[in-house]
Design a protein around this nucleic acid. Structure first.
Lengths: 136, 136
DNA sequence: TTAATCCCTAGTGGATTACTTGGGTATAAA
DNA sequence: TTTATACCCAAGTAATCCACTAGGGATTAA
């Protein structure tokens, strides 16, 4: 019923990567793309959009690349998604129905689920890796 | 970022209408469509899909129409949405990423938000109407 | 018999998605 | 100063999906 766009999936993945390497300075987009099997030129477009949204900074020239504009604690998954695919709005505003209140409430609760910082995500991926390792 | 399809919006609206009139026997689709400003032929297609999904029954001929296949208590909003637009799957299954566990968790929590029966929805719309009435 | 209703298929214009292509421009390092 | 390395940008595109519209056919109660 709902699904994430490929763009958003790539975007969060790239943002997480930049978060992991936050201390190491800018990362070039080609490496990030190759690491995650993302078409290189397409990822550039995604990163450009994240830049326009103030989530990422870019540095040109050799040794250039992309870096988070703020710390991983300050960037939420929701921010990335909203930047790339617009804000979550379950129903269009122009037609109103008797269920608007219900959809609006659902929307608020879904947004809350996505209030997770990149820093939290890093921790979560580590925990998940541990679980997987132990279970093997 | 995500949004509901028009089909789902119409579908839940129609299901709610059939729930409200559950005791009155089958309702014809044209009336339901006109009541909610839904294109008549399109709603028929939506109802046909709900029928194939076992959510609704249909009765042909004059005095025919559509009725819920089960009581309003037994039909969830999630059921209607899944019938019309497939199951909620945030990410495609063929490509796996380090974030699959996160998206999967989010998915489960979103599904929980939609575990609301049509009977609950009726109650909720009444409560909402009361709030609006009092606040005027 | 007839009017009402569901049933079914096909078509369609517009939008969106997920890219690809092919350059241009700034910058660090040689 | 040259050059390699990156980002920057615009256009095109095949495929798919969406939200209908159109137009008949089949069944049933009255």
């Amino acid at each position: 019923m709902f699904s994430l766009s490929q763009k958003s999936i790539y975007g969060v993945l790239a943002a997480l990567e930049l978060a992991k390497r936050y201390a190491d300075g800018p990362q070039n987009s080609r490496c990030v793309a190759e690491d995650h099997g993302i078409p290189c030129n397409y990822l550039e477009q995604v990163l450009a959009q994240l830049k326009r949204g103030g989530i990422v900074n870019s540095f040109r020239g050799s040794q250039g690349g992309y870096a988070l504009a703020r710390s991983p604690q300050e960037i939420l998954v929701k921010n990335v998604l909203e930047c790339l695919d617009g804000s979550l709005s379950l129903v269009s505003d122009n037609k109103s129905t008797v269920l608007d209140f219900f959809w609006h409430d659902a929307q608020t609760r879904i947004e809350a689920i996505l209030d997770v910082s990149l820093a939290d995500l890093i921790v979560a991926t580590r925990q998940y890796d541990n679980v997987v390792s132990y279970s093997i």
